[in-house]
Design a protein around this nucleic acid. Structure first.
Length: 662
RNA sequence: GGGCCUGUAGCUCAGAAGGAUAGAGCAACGGUUUCCUAAACCGUGGGUCGGGGGUUCGAAUCCCUCCAGGCCUACCA
């Protein structure tokens, strides 16, 4: 609705500039007037036109304003300041359209052609998830929800690097540090008293020291090779470990409302020789070449010396090269990733077979790429657009994948391959010490310390969630909002999740989150619980009102509040305060689109907080249940309903549920 | 050396493709509850938008340069 009006204004603006000044211009950019009385949308283009037309901007704006109307949805146009064109929307019409839209949201059916594939989480399946992984999953999951809300067909993939070095390291740990057999590791996995992912967390941290102390450089490479080839005990143990850990990761993520459609396993990419197909193609086209001399002798490498042009021959030849196949014949991560991404777009001419891997409580299945093909699997892959949510340190690798696409001639697909980059989560030095880690003096000087699975330094996801749930549950109990223990637990969980998800979403992707307990455990101010509480307040009004008015439902409000009354209320004394709320709720779709196009879900978080703040202010100013004038009371209820629906829907986009009471 | 990112209030961060008086949360101080209302609301103080130059009617925003910090630049991922 709001977006449609914007579109009409743009169109009309161009037409009017053409007819009044005989000038072709592009789409104008909208600004937002600083105060709502000035209007709802503004165009500052008069200032630029002033140059071309050699007329003062104010005069230009005046001439345009006289000719712009009618525009459907716009009540009037005013000129302000030195030449701003301000558009005042038709308040009553917009409010009633929004009421319908928010009360009966359109079914989430895909209106865009094609499929958007979002890969996120993709944690190495060799240890428990930590706070950094949560940021990835929450960003990715929110992005999926946003895409779906805006009419995209979305598929969520979680890539499982079950044949990589990190898994190999834990296998080495079990085999050579703990001297455990496959059977013994299996017993450990099945032992309910052991948190297997936590166990591996500690073991993995010990492996680095083990390599240093034993001086055995071959062990890791040999183990990795065996795993890649799927042979022997190391491979069996790797399968056992990674499968167990992936299940635990799914359970951790489920706690914070993050789910997946399909798990793509690297072992299958190797087994089905996806890599081989990609490799053949790259050789054929000459995207990679075999080095016979120099430091990379025996490797297949890809040239990165792109576009720049002016570069001294010697240095570009030696350094601007990326190894794709190692001299021992194993494939680097990039190589496998190229194959995986080719499959995403259906460029490989091959497909996996799929089997159920995990079932959520409501019956939804998570599939994985398994040998034991099962009928009825959805058609995965064949994306028209692909996003990979990966931290910014891997930008270089992501660029190589895109470069490979271009080298292979897949220019169009390269354009639709997006690296959804975000910064890492670090711990403040004080926080790390609080958790019992000993820091080196140089780390104490830094503003944050990097989380490191290798060193075992980090806050485990489940530990943080546990802390949040404990704190939230304590609040729920002390506020005595319900006596039912099951309800208390449910509220505690919802509040904990909202706190965590909002905390991870409110920062823009390109800032490092320096984790701090005080801030992360806060339930007041700019937090998830604040938002939930705002909705609960709005719902309380309806609950109490309905108790005194038999048979009342919010859906009946349009029958009582006609457009003429809407118009009168918005034009009245407090009209601007009321209108401010409506105009904000109208912006949801615009904000969601912006969050998608900039891969910046924080925009939605900031938006919903602003709406909640505005509502809370309104809530204090206007006492709805005490309102003696029933026409005005109905109007206020009408407003509250629009806001409540918008807040609830927006929190839903962030994966946040709302308790009945708080 | 090269590439990417960051620098805005005491702290943590927003700031819409250059626009109207630079915002929020936390912290500090002062107010507001027999309630639809405190997980909240209102008010006060707090800024050379890292420095310098430039483009422009207009710059936190674009360009150049310098300073400070971070990340990447592996036959790890």
């Amino acid at each position: 609705m709001y977006l449609e009006i914007q579109g009409r204004i743009r169109q009309k603006f161009r037409e009017t500039v053409k007819s009044v000044f005989n000038l072709e211009v592009g789409d104008p950019v909208f600004d937002f007037p600083p105060r709502p009385e000035l209007g709802d949308l503004s165009i500052a283009a008069s200032f630029e036109l002033a140059k071309k037309l050699r007329q003062p901007p104010r005069k230009i704006a005046d001439q345009l304003a006289a000719q712009l109307l009618p525009i459907e949805g716009v009540a009037r146009v005013s000129v302000a300041g030195a030449g701003y064109l301000n558009f005042h929307l038709d308040r009553a019409v917009l409010a009633s359209v929004l009421f319908q839209l928010r009360t009966f949201p359109a079914l989430a059916e895909a209106v865009h052609p094609g499929k958007v594939l979002v890969e996120h989480t993709s944690i190495n399946p060799n240890k428990a998830a930590h706070i950094g992984h949560l940021r990835n999953s929450v960003l990715g999951d929110t992005f999926v929800r946003l895409l779906s809300f805006r009419g995209h067909h979305v598929e969520t993939q979680n890539y499982i690097d079950n044949t990589g070095v990190q898994v190999a390291d834990v296998v080495v740990g079990f085999q050579h540090i703990e001297k455990k057999t496959v059977a013994e590791v299996r017993a450990l996995v099945e032992n309910k008293d052991v948190r297997f992912d936590y166990y591996c967390w500690d073991l993995y941290a010990r492996v680095s020291n083990f390599y240093i102390e034993s001086g055995d450089k071959e062990l890791r490479a040999a183990t990795l090779k065996a795993i890649e080839e799927g042979k022997g005990e190391p491979a069996e143990m790797a399968r056992l470990i990674s499968t167990a850990i992936v299940k635990l990761h799914l359970e951790t993520m489920q706690r914070i409302n993050v789910r997946y459609d399909v798990l793509v396993e690297e072992s299958e990419i190797l087994r089905l020789e996806f890599w081989k197909s990609a490799f053949e193609l790259m050789k054929e086209i000459g995207a990679i070449r075999f080095e016979t001399a120099g430091k990379n002798a025996g490797c297949w490498v890809m040239d990165l010396g792109d576009s720049e042009g002016e570069k001294s021959e010697e240095e570009s030849a030696a350094d601007d090269v990326k190894i794709i196949v190692r001299s021992n014949g194993t494939v680097t991560y990039v190589g496998k990733d190229i194959a995986y991404h080719m499959w995403k777009f259906g460029l490989l001419g091959k497909d996996f077979s799929y089997a159920p891997f995990y079932r959520y409580a409501d019956g939804k299945t998570v599939w994985h790429t398994g040998k034991e093909a099962q009928a009825g699997a959805p058609a995965f892959g064949h994306a028209s657009e692909a996003y990979a949510v990966i931290d910014t340190r891997q930008a270089y690798l992501q660029n190589i994948v895109a470069a490979a696409f271009r080298a292979l001639g897949f220019h169009d697909q390269a354009e639709h391959l997006h690296h959804f980059a975000y910064e890492v989560v670090g711990l403040s030095p004080a926080c790390a010490q609080e958790m019992g880690y000993e820091l080196r003096p140089e780390d104490l000087e830094r503003s944050y310390v990097e989380v490191s699975g290798r060193k075992g330094l980090g806050l485990k996801a489940d530990d943080l969630i546990d802390m949040l749930v404990a704190k939230a549950s304590e609040e729920v109990r002390s506020r005595e909002m319900t006596q039912d223990p099951a309800e208390q637990a449910a509220y505690g969980r919802m509040i904990a999740v909202s706190s965590l998800r909002y905390f991870l979403l409110k920062f823009s992707c390109h800032v490092i989150i320096t984790f701090d307990f005080k801030e992360a455990l806060a339930f007041e101010g700019e937090t998830g619980p604040y938002l939930q509480y705002t909705i609960v307040r709005a719902r309380n009004i309806f609950r109490k009102y309905a108790a005194d008015h038999e048979g009342f439902t919010p859906e009946s409000l349009p029958d009582k509040v006609k457009q003429t009354e809407l118009g009168r209320s918005f034009a009245g004394e407090d009209g601007t305060a009321f209108w401010e709320l409506v105009v904000l709720t109208a912006q949801l779709e615009m904000v969601a689109d912006q969050a998608i196009s900039t891969t910046e879900p924080a925009a939605v978080a900031k938006y919903v907080f602003r709406l909640a703040q505005t509502f809370n202010n309104f809530y204090h100013r206007f006492h709805i249940l005490h309102e003696p004038d029933s026409a005005r009371q109905n109007f206020l209820l009408y407003l509250v309903h629009i806001v409540e629906r918008t807040l609830t829907q927006t929190l839903g986009l962030m994966g946040i549920e709302v308790p009945e009471r708080m």
